[in-house]
Write a protein that binds this DNA or RNA. Structure first.
Lengths: 102, 102
DNA sequence: TAATATTATGTCATATTTGACATAATGTCA
DNA sequence: TGACATTATGTCAAATATGACATAATATTA
């Protein structure tokens, strides 16, 4: 958000800020959440690039469609481990994971 | 392992190969294990660079010395999530994590 | 060497993550 | 529009990860 818009919102009584501020997250916590989100979005991108449904991916990784949906939504009950294992199952390389994280 | 040494071992009845072959891991599983190990080693490196004991790091991340030891040994009961959260607590950036993974 | 500090390993109760299921919501296409 | 495919959300029992503790092993230093 640019400063102009921020100032405008604050004029109206809103306290504009980052998502981290809003949720009361520390810097590390925010980084962790953002990092997980990047992996989640990349998983979806990679799945779609392969023209697979969530159900197909689920079978590939011996999981379920609902869990794949939660992965792509970066649900709090999803671990980075599961995201990475899923990406590896889709053929992602270490450098690919590294790029996604950076 | 080079081919010469491999041949020499096989001559003696050993079946030489990669760690993955030895443990019967698939490529993805092997990549996952190696990736985790990289994070584990980097955690130790970063802790030592800060002249901290495992106990001190444990307090920083609200864990225990034994768990830190297991992290650095890449124990199977350790998640990538815990390793990453710990590295972030030590001040690692996203690009630092990316470098470690690649 | 002995005393002390640090790290490693095994175990436990508790907390979190898991796959699975039901079903709601949304998208697609005739 | 309606039928069908796909994705989203809530919940559960089972599996796995967690911090904590005891204590063994190893390193460091007097």
């Amino acid at each position: 958000m640019n400063n102009k818009k921020k100032a405008a919102l604050e004029q109206k009584g809103w306290k504009a800020g980052t998502t981290a501020e809003f949720l009361g997250l520390s810097d590390e916590e925010a980084t962790y959440v953002e990092l997980k989100l990047s992996l989640a979005l990349y998983l979806q991108k990679k799945r779609r690039a392969k023209h697979m449904t969530q159900d197909q991916l689920a079978r590939l990784i011996h999981s379920s469609q609902s869990r794949v949906a939660k992965m792509e939504k970066s649900d709090p009950t999803i671990s980075i481990d599961l995201l990475m294992k899923s990406l590896l199952a889709l053929g992602a390389s270490r450098s690919e994971l590294a790029r996604t994280i950076s």
